[in-house]
């Protein structure tokens, strides 16, 4: 039994790079769990029905890590990032 919670899962993709990144959302896979928005609201917005509107959006280096965390949180694996 651990005395305190520890950081369990490392953020998968980072060293933070100084380049922008493009968010790709597979609309066939997105079913509106809303986890991307819950994890990184500044990067991922939702439409009126709760589906991600981030497809095609480009984010700057300062938001790369948040974009990656939002993508990793998607249980449908619907989000990927392109350089």
């Amino acid at each position: 039994m651990k005395a305190t919670p520890v950081k369990a899962t490392p953020v998968k993709a980072t060293p933070v790079k100084a380049t922008p990144v493009k968010i790709v959302v597979d609309s066939a896979r997105c079913t509106g769990h809303g986890r991307c928005h819950a994890i990184a609201a500044a990067v991922y917005q939702l439409d009126e029905d709760g589906f991600s509107t981030a497809d095609g959006q480009t984010v700057g280096p300062e938001q790369r890590e948040d974009a990656q965390r939002g993508a990793n949180a998607c249980p449908e694996a619907a989000i990927s990032l392109e350089e």
Partner: peptide
């Protein structure tokens, strides 16, 4: 074990796909 600081947590408690 429960870790409240997992940076992401893509569990499927609510199901996946067409029936989420």
């Amino acid at each position: 074990h429960a870790h409240f600081d997992r940076p992401d947590n893509p569990h499927m408690a609510f199901g996946l796909g067409a029936h989420r």
